[in-house]
Amino acid sequence: MSEGPDKKAFEQRLQAAEDAAQGSARESEAKQASSARRAIELAMRLGVEMVAAMVIAVVVGWGLDKLFHTSPWLMIVMVPVGMAAGIRNLLRAAGKNE
């Protein structure tokens, strides 16, 4: 069934159908849909991204303070570092999706 001229005719028709399916209209439509999906995906990510860095920075600072008995100085130092890391996360997430 899959041998001989039948198969050749099938391949030709498949090729023709694929060419027809890749018309310009469909391509731009697909591109639009994927960019919208990326936008939603990005919006879902960004909010948490910044807060997470902040939380981790404060927890690390607090833990180091407990370890070295320097409360509360290391935690205070870590807060701007956490903010910077949050911005870094944002930039990285936005850059990946361009």
Binding site: V48, A52, A53, I56, A57, V81, N89
Partner: peptide, 22 residues
């Protein structure tokens, strides 16, 4: 370097909190 390390460590937090919160 600390900024990069904090940024790396924050990955599991953001990953889990996003799903859980939604």
């Amino acid at each position: 370097v600390p900024i990069e390390i904090i940024s790396y460590l924050s990955r599991p937090v953001s990953l889990s909190v996003r799903l859980f919160a939604n």
